[in-house]
């Protein structure tokens, strides 16, 4: 396992969508070198929380927040500009969302807008990213075909390759396998396992078994609150809070 150091620190985070408070006083530390899973029922705030880390909530009208989100000690809502932040903090969404371009262009797009123009360098980045996303062998002979010709699972790995291509340090994954079949899901999970040595990964999942398989740390959200966080094994076998217990054992009505 890679060195575990404090990578993301969230302090006293409140988030509102208009009058609705989506997150209430969240404090959480995310360590590098491991996978942190955010779990909780629909509407609990876990995706909203994920989006505060790379400022994706900025684009939502009426969203406002207070508190601090520090990446390597720097407040992402202060000194850091959004483009730099999003280069450092990549994101993968629930449904694969490749651009209507070729497989190659999907991966080359990010490095290109960040100023990489040299064809040979771009080709290197594309290959390296596709290899890291465990997709290279399947697409190396058809890089110039439309990304839409790929299966759903392949498209999701393409989106992961696209996120990796700009060289992020942190990868946010919002239900990355929920639209995929069990085989494709297993490949994504295996990929998460491989990537955690090089990237800090925060994953939102509804699937508790998935959280237990892929993560080493876990945080349970409920109604905008962070109820409990700890190692996944502690949280899943012996949670301290009754609300976590009730959720994990399916006792919510």
């Amino acid at each position: 396992m890679a060195d575990q150091t404090l990578r993301i620190e969230v302090r006293h985070l409140d988030l509102f969508y208009g009058q609705v408070q989506a997150l209430k006083g969240i404090n959480l530390q995310v360590m590098s070198g491991l996978v942190t899973a955010l779990v909780g029922p629909s509407g609990c705030g876990k995706s909203s929380f994920l989006r505060t880390i790379n400022r994706m909530n900025d684009v939502i009208p009426g969203a406002r927040m207070s508190g601090e989100v520090l990446v390597d000690g720097v407040d992402v809502y202060g000194a850091m500009d959004v483009a730099t932040l999003r280069k450092r903090v990549g994101m993968v969404f629930q449904k694969p969302n490749p651009f209507p371009r070729s497989i190659f262009e999907n991966v080359a797009y990010g490095p290109r807008i960040h100023g990489q123009r040299k064809p040979a360098e771009l080709a290197d980045i594309v290959e390296k990213s596709l290899r890291q996303a465990a997709l290279w062998d399947e697409v190396k002979d058809k890089l110039h075909r439309s990304a839409y010709t790929l299966s759903g699972g392949q498209q999701q790995r393409l989106c992961i390759a696209r996120a990796l291509a700009v060289g992020p340090e942190i990868l946010l994954m919002d239900e990355p396998a929920s639209a995929l079949d069990p085989i494709a899901t297993a490949r994504i999970e295996e990929l998460v396992h491989q990537l955690k040595t090089s990237y800090t990964i925060v994953i939102v999942t509804h699937n508790l078994q998935q959280a237990s398989r892929v993560s080493q740390h876990a945080a349970f959200f409920l109604s905008g609150e962070l109820v409990e966080a700890g190692t996944t094994s502690d949280l899943f076998t012996a949670p301290r809070d009754k609300r976590t217990e009730d959720y994990l054992t399916g006792r919510f009505g």
Partner: peptide
């Protein structure tokens, strides 16, 4: 059922 927490214990 892949039980967790108290159910698993």
């Amino acid at each position: 059922h892949q039980p967790l927490a108290g159910d698993l214990r």
